[in-house]
Amino acid sequence: MPNASSRRFRHATMQDYPQMERIYAHARELMARNGNPTQWGNTFPRPEVVREDIANHRTILLVDTVGGHERILAQFAVCPGLDPTYGSIEGAWLDDDAYITIHRIASSGLVRHAARDCIEWTLKHYGNVRVDTHPNNKAMQHVLESCGFARCGLIQLIDRDEDLTRIAYQRHEW
Protein backbone atom coordinates (compact mmCIF):
# COMPACT_ATOMS: atom_id res chain seq x y z
CA MET A 1 0.00 0.00 0.00
CA PRO A 2 1.47 3.40 -0.96
CA ASN A 3 2.27 5.79 1.82
CA ALA A 4 0.72 9.23 2.20
CA SER A 5 3.97 10.91 1.14
CA SER A 6 3.55 9.61 -2.43
CA ARG A 7 0.26 11.47 -2.71
CA ARG A 8 0.11 14.74 -4.61
CA PHE A 9 -2.47 17.24 -5.81
CA ARG A 10 -3.06 18.46 -9.36
CA HIS A 11 -5.76 20.13 -11.41
CA ALA A 12 -8.15 17.84 -13.25
CA THR A 13 -8.27 17.73 -17.04
CA MET A 14 -11.03 16.52 -19.35
CA GLN A 15 -9.06 13.26 -19.70
CA ASP A 16 -9.88 12.66 -16.02
CA TYR A 17 -13.61 13.16 -16.51
CA PRO A 18 -14.64 9.49 -17.08
CA GLN A 19 -12.82 8.34 -13.93
CA MET A 20 -14.23 11.28 -11.98
CA GLU A 21 -17.76 10.30 -12.98
CA ARG A 22 -17.10 6.75 -11.70
CA ILE A 23 -15.86 8.18 -8.39
CA TYR A 24 -18.97 10.36 -8.06
CA ALA A 25 -21.14 7.28 -8.75
CA HIS A 26 -19.23 5.38 -6.05
CA ALA A 27 -19.75 8.30 -3.62
CA ARG A 28 -23.51 8.39 -4.33
CA GLU A 29 -23.77 4.65 -3.65
CA LEU A 30 -21.74 4.95 -0.45
CA MET A 31 -23.83 7.87 0.82
CA ALA A 32 -27.05 5.97 0.13
CA ARG A 33 -25.76 2.86 1.96
CA ASN A 34 -24.82 5.03 4.95
CA GLY A 35 -28.21 6.67 5.46
CA ASN A 36 -27.75 9.68 3.18
CA PRO A 37 -29.56 8.79 -0.06
CA THR A 38 -30.82 12.29 -0.91
CA GLN A 39 -27.79 14.61 -0.66
CA TRP A 40 -26.70 13.78 -4.20
CA GLY A 41 -29.45 11.31 -5.13
CA ASN A 42 -28.81 9.82 -8.56
CA THR A 43 -28.12 13.08 -10.38
CA PHE A 44 -25.61 15.19 -8.45
CA PRO A 45 -23.19 16.49 -9.20
CA ARG A 46 -24.58 17.14 -12.66
CA PRO A 47 -22.15 16.24 -15.50
CA GLU A 48 -22.24 19.77 -16.93
CA VAL A 49 -21.20 21.19 -13.54
CA VAL A 50 -18.30 18.72 -13.28
CA ARG A 51 -17.15 19.59 -16.81
CA GLU A 52 -17.45 23.33 -16.05
CA ASP A 53 -15.40 22.87 -12.87
CA ILE A 54 -12.66 21.16 -14.91
CA ALA A 55 -12.74 23.79 -17.67
CA ASN A 56 -12.47 26.60 -15.11
CA HIS A 57 -9.60 24.90 -13.22
CA ARG A 58 -11.66 24.51 -10.05
CA THR A 59 -11.32 20.73 -9.75
CA ILE A 60 -8.39 19.46 -7.75
CA LEU A 61 -7.43 15.78 -7.67
CA LEU A 62 -5.55 13.91 -4.98
CA VAL A 63 -3.54 11.28 -6.84
CA ASP A 64 -0.82 8.72 -6.34
CA THR A 65 1.09 6.36 -8.62
CA VAL A 66 1.10 2.60 -8.14
CA GLY A 67 2.85 0.25 -10.55
CA GLY A 68 3.48 3.11 -12.94
CA HIS A 69 -0.21 4.02 -13.11
CA GLU A 70 -1.71 7.15 -11.63
CA ARG A 71 -4.81 6.69 -9.47
CA ILE A 72 -7.32 9.34 -8.45
CA LEU A 73 -7.82 9.02 -4.71
CA ALA A 74 -10.22 11.94 -4.27
CA GLN A 75 -11.57 14.97 -6.09
CA PHE A 76 -13.10 18.28 -5.10
CA ALA A 77 -13.94 21.71 -6.46
CA VAL A 78 -12.32 24.79 -4.96
CA CYS A 79 -14.60 27.71 -5.77
CA PRO A 80 -13.38 31.29 -5.23
CA GLY A 81 -15.62 34.29 -4.72
CA LEU A 82 -18.95 34.76 -3.03
CA ASP A 83 -21.12 31.66 -3.05
CA PRO A 84 -24.72 32.82 -3.61
CA THR A 85 -26.02 29.93 -1.51
CA TYR A 86 -24.14 31.33 1.48
CA GLY A 87 -25.73 34.79 1.29
CA SER A 88 -28.37 33.82 3.84
CA ILE A 89 -27.61 31.69 6.88
CA GLU A 90 -29.64 30.69 9.91
CA GLY A 91 -26.75 31.30 12.29
CA ALA A 92 -23.60 33.31 11.54
CA TRP A 93 -20.40 32.91 9.58
CA LEU A 94 -17.16 33.42 11.49
CA ASP A 95 -16.42 36.59 9.48
CA ASP A 96 -17.13 38.41 6.23
CA ASP A 97 -13.59 38.03 4.87
CA ALA A 98 -12.90 36.61 1.41
CA TYR A 99 -13.16 32.81 1.39
CA ILE A 100 -12.90 29.72 -0.78
CA THR A 101 -15.71 27.16 -0.88
CA ILE A 102 -15.13 23.43 -1.15
CA HIS A 103 -17.81 21.68 -3.19
CA ARG A 104 -18.35 18.19 -4.61
CA ILE A 105 -15.71 16.37 -2.59
CA ALA A 106 -15.62 12.63 -3.23
CA SER A 107 -13.21 9.83 -2.41
CA SER A 108 -12.53 6.86 -4.65
CA GLY A 109 -12.41 4.58 -1.60
CA LEU A 110 -8.91 3.35 -2.46
CA VAL A 111 -7.22 4.83 0.63
CA ARG A 112 -8.23 6.12 4.04
CA HIS A 113 -8.38 9.82 4.94
CA ALA A 114 -8.41 11.08 1.34
CA ALA A 115 -11.19 13.61 2.03
CA ARG A 116 -9.33 14.88 5.09
CA ASP A 117 -6.18 15.30 3.00
CA CYS A 118 -8.15 17.38 0.47
CA ILE A 119 -9.62 19.60 3.18
CA GLU A 120 -6.23 20.10 4.85
CA TRP A 121 -4.65 20.97 1.48
CA THR A 122 -7.34 23.61 0.89
CA LEU A 123 -6.81 25.12 4.34
CA LYS A 124 -3.06 25.27 3.78
CA HIS A 125 -3.42 26.99 0.40
CA TYR A 126 -6.39 29.29 1.03
CA GLY A 127 -6.78 29.78 4.79
CA ASN A 128 -10.42 30.86 4.95
CA VAL A 129 -12.66 27.99 3.85
CA ARG A 130 -16.40 27.45 3.87
CA VAL A 131 -18.18 24.19 3.14
CA ASP A 132 -21.59 22.66 3.68
CA THR A 133 -22.98 19.17 3.97
CA HIS A 134 -26.27 17.36 4.35
CA PRO A 135 -27.61 16.78 7.89
CA ASN A 136 -27.52 13.02 7.15
CA ASN A 137 -23.88 13.06 6.03
CA LYS A 138 -22.45 12.11 9.41
CA ALA A 139 -19.11 11.03 7.92
CA MET A 140 -18.43 14.45 6.38
CA GLN A 141 -19.61 16.24 9.52
CA HIS A 142 -17.09 14.19 11.50
CA VAL A 143 -14.26 14.96 9.07
CA LEU A 144 -15.02 18.69 9.07
CA GLU A 145 -15.29 18.91 12.84
CA SER A 146 -12.11 16.87 13.35
CA CYS A 147 -10.35 19.29 10.96
CA GLY A 148 -11.31 22.19 13.22
CA PHE A 149 -14.25 23.61 11.28
CA ALA A 150 -16.89 25.50 13.24
CA ARG A 151 -20.52 24.65 12.66
CA CYS A 152 -21.93 28.06 11.73
CA GLY A 153 -25.60 27.29 11.08
CA LEU A 154 -27.96 26.16 8.36
CA ILE A 155 -28.18 27.30 4.75
CA GLN A 156 -30.73 26.54 2.05
CA LEU A 157 -29.59 25.42 -1.39
CA ILE A 158 -30.79 27.68 -4.18
CA ASP A 159 -30.24 25.28 -7.10
CA ARG A 160 -32.69 22.54 -6.03
CA ASP A 161 -36.41 22.19 -5.45
CA GLU A 162 -36.37 19.81 -2.48
CA ASP A 163 -34.07 18.58 0.32
CA LEU A 164 -32.56 22.07 0.57
CA THR A 165 -31.15 22.28 4.11
CA ARG A 166 -27.40 21.95 4.64
CA ILE A 167 -25.16 22.42 7.66
CA ALA A 168 -22.69 25.25 7.02
CA TYR A 169 -19.11 25.15 8.30
CA GLN A 170 -16.19 27.54 8.23
CA ARG A 171 -12.57 27.53 9.30
CA HIS A 172 -10.36 30.57 9.06
CA GLU A 173 -6.62 30.21 9.55
CA TRP A 174 -5.74 33.55 11.08
Rank of each mutant, 00 (worst) to 15 (best):
V129Y: 03
R58E: 06
I155M: 13
Q75V: 15
S107Q: 07
R51E: 08
D163Y: 10
H26A: 06
H113R: 05
P37T: 01
Q75Y: 10
D95M: 01
R46F: 08
R130Y: 11
Q39E: 02
H142K: 14
R130T: 12
Y126P: 02
T165L: 05
I72Y: 01
S107A: 07
E162G: 05
T165E: 03
W121M: 12
G153Q: 11
L123D: 00
S108M: 06
P80A: 11
S146A: 14
H142I: 14
Q15T: 14
F44R: 14
T43M: 15
I102G: 09
D96P: 00
T38H: 08
L144V: 14
L157N: 08
M20A: 04
A55G: 10
D53H: 06
R166F: 04
V111F: 00
D83S: 02
Q15N: 13
I54T: 11
W121S: 09
F9T: 05
R116C: 07
R28K: 07
L30T: 14
T133K: 00
H142W: 13
L123M: 06
N128P: 07
P45F: 15
R112Q: 10
R104V: 07
R28P: 12
C79V: 10
H26N: 10
A27L: 00
Q19R: 12
G91Q: 10
E29L: 11
M14W: 13
A74W: 15
G68Y: 04
R116L: 06
A150H: 08
I102V: 13
E48K: 04
A106Y: 06
L73P: 00
I54A: 00
R71P: 00
N56F: 00
T101I: 09
G81C: 13
G91R: 12
N56T: 00
H134Q: 00
A114M: 05
G41I: 09
E162C: 04
G68M: 08
N137T: 15
Q170C: 07
F44N: 13
H11R: 09
V111S: 00
R33Q: 15
